[in-house]
């Protein structure tokens, strides 16, 4: 899908410029957004702190290292608000109103167009607060910082973003058949809440579900382990493999789904 188009960068930057311009219509939102970032930070730190008593242990993670996980989760949440939710909710609407035709007729890869059309700035404060949490947690867990760790951590974070994107896109593509799948994304969102806490904090049965069925472990726990230099090479390769195959499956699945697209009102 990402076959190099010379004008690709130009297209995306004009998409994002136009969507930022239209979002700035609602400037009042920024106050609400900042309030909700603060509220969310306070609430999730408070809830996390409830699990930490004198023994300072939740599933083998101490307080600062689980803040790293919370930070990654928060970052992913902001990423969802900025990129995934606004774009992928439109797929559903396109199918419902039959306007997907116009997208398919454009000389741009349709998956690319649908995934990057909108840039909603409202997730940025959340992403920033996630980054702050991550660096706060890392700073106090006395972990060493080296080029290698930074490189591996970024790789793991990217593969976590790819997996998250793929999950959203896969569900959104099923709207070709089921039309109204918006709630399926809501289901996904509420399941991913489990990623706020280290995967080892869950009972064994849930832990298996969150590793093999809904890959939550790959979204937050593994990247955090990479940042803390705890992740073995085996898991690094495994994460990369999973994320790339997820990405591959989305393009295949989208092309397959399009074969069933009959357009509305025709």
């Amino acid at each position: 899908m990402f076959n190099k188009k010379p004008h690709f960068v130009r297209i995306v930057s004009s998409f994002w410029a136009s969507s930022i311009a239209s979002e700035l219509e609602y400037r009042f939102n920024i106050i609400i957004e900042i309030l909700s970032v603060i509220g969310n930070l306070a609430g999730s730190l408070f809830t996390l702190s409830l699990f930490y008593g004198p023994n300072n242990n939740l599933g083998g993670w101490n307080w600062y290292s689980s803040i790293v996980i919370l930070g990654i989760y928060t970052f992913l949440e902001g990423f969802t608000t900025t990129f995934l939710q606004p774009n992928l909710s439109r797929i559903v609407r396109h199918v419902q109103n039959g306007t997907l035709d116009f997208v398919l007729l454009k000389p741009v890869d349709s998956q690319l167009w649908l995934s990057l059309r909108i840039f909603s700035p409202w997730g940025i404060p959340t992403m920033l607060s996630g980054l702050i949490l991550i660096s706060f947690g890392l700073n106090f867990s006395n972990s060493e910082i080296s080029i290698k760790i930074i490189l591996i951590s970024s790789l793991m974070l990217i593969s976590s973003l790819l997996i998250l994107y793929s999950l959203w896109f896969l569900i959104a593509s099923t709207s070709i058949w089921f039309v109204r799948v918006w709630n399926a994304n809501e289901v996904l969102r509420s399941t991913l809440v489990a990623g706020r806490y280290p995967i080892t904090a869950y009972p064994d049965s849930l832990r298996k579900v969150f590793t093999f069925i809904v890959p939550i472990a790959f979204l937050t726990t593994f990247p955090a382990e990479a940042m803390l230099n705890l992740l073995s090479l085996k898991y690094i390769l495994f994460s990369l493999l999973i994320s790339l195959s997820f990405l591959y499956i989305t393009t295949k699945f989208w092309n397959y789904a399009l074969r069933f697209y009959t357009s509305a009102s025709s």
Binding site: L50, F51, Y52, G53, N55, N57, L58, G59, N183, E186, V187, R189, S190, T191, V193, A194, Y197, A201, Y202, P203, L206
Partner: peptide, 20 residues
Amino acid sequence: WAISGLLPLIMLGIWQEAGI
């Protein structure tokens, strides 16, 4: 929608496991 309300059951898992 009903499935998306599973949060309390996920939290149950973590609370039962937490030593606290």
